[in-house]
Amino acid sequence: MTSLVLLAWAAAVAVLARPALTGRWTTSLPRLTVGLWLGAELSATVAVLTAGLLVAVPPAALAAGMEGIVVACTRALAGLGAPNETLAAIGLLATAILAARLLISVSVTFTSARRWRRRHLAALLPVGRPVANGWTVVDHAAAAVYCLPGRPGQVVVTSAAIDTLTADELAAVLRHERAHLQGRHHLLVALAVAFHRALPGLPLAEAAETEIRRLVEHLADDHASARHGRQAVATAIVQLADRTPRHALGAGTGAVERVRRMLAPPARPRILHRLVAASAIGLLLTGPPAVAVASAGLVLQAATCPTGSPPAAGSPAHLAGG
């Protein structure tokens, strides 16, 4: 029953998250909306993994610690042909496969992105000219500004961008890129990419990657416009539209929507809206563990209080009978 509840939870999150988190209101709460997307992915994943684990490992075995878990898993795999153990073995194998896919996808995504950025940076160093305030200029005919996350992170500016942008626009773009680096936005995008690679057929995974890429640009735009104004950011976005290498975060990504948002900013969210979004993130993260813990508690309580035993003195049942 607990596994069915957890699977229903995962299905509900996977179905409802996409329409709920793609409305116009998300542009006014980009940071919390990123948290909601990642929370939805994590919540659905934890629910499915826990459901599969509980099929093979009942709550009583979980309460016994690692020894109980190992014994239950061994029994399920050893009795694969037995009717009572087949479902447990299927649940255990499905959980292991899903967990392995997720771990491999995260590892491959982060490793490949880091390797690409290192190669790109190594190719830029011989031709780049470091500037005193922490960015690198590269001679190129196309106007582009982007950052390469890492230790240390690098902001790359082409010579054409310097010629095209005004001083205020260039300062806004540089602040935009530094916001990406300081906020570790590449990690948020990489998590969404890894989840999508692990589950390519899941609409939630595809939508989460698209939306998180969009929302981190809104976060950086807000950071830049707070100092240099929305007009400067909007004009710079138009000048640099869609000239960003892969595995990099650039000021020209998703130009049309971002320009509209800069010129016609969304209404400032109320405190109530922020509280609701933060509460929803907390519910997504704590829901599956709470269901599993509550189920384990009920099973253990039933095991320690057999049916037919007299109620303890002072208990509600004893008081009602007395």
Rank of each mutant, 00 (worst) to 15 (best):
A172Q: 04
T158V: 09
V156L: 11
A167I: 07
L174W: 06
T158I: 08
T164D: 08
V173C: 03
D163W: 05
D168E: 15
L174A: 11
R184S: 13
T166S: 15
L181E: 03
L170E: 01
Q182G: 14
T164F: 02
V173W: 00
A167N: 11
D168L: 10
L165A: 04
R184H: 15
R178M: 10
T164Y: 01
V156I: 15
A171C: 06
H176A: 03
V156H: 06
A172L: 07
S159F: 12
A160E: 05
R184P: 02
G183A: 15
A179S: 15
R178H: 15
V173T: 10
Q154E: 15
R175S: 06
R184M: 11
A160M: 04
V157T: 07
H176I: 01
D168C: 07
V173L: 00
A179Y: 05
T166Y: 00
H180Y: 11
H186N: 13
H185P: 04
R175Y: 00
I162N: 03
T166F: 00
R178K: 13
V173H: 00
T158E: 06
R175K: 14
T164L: 13
A160L: 03
A171Y: 00
H186E: 15
E177Y: 12
H185N: 14
A179L: 09
L170A: 10
V173G: 00
A171I: 01
A179R: 07
A179F: 09
D163H: 13
A172S: 13
L181H: 05
V173I: 10
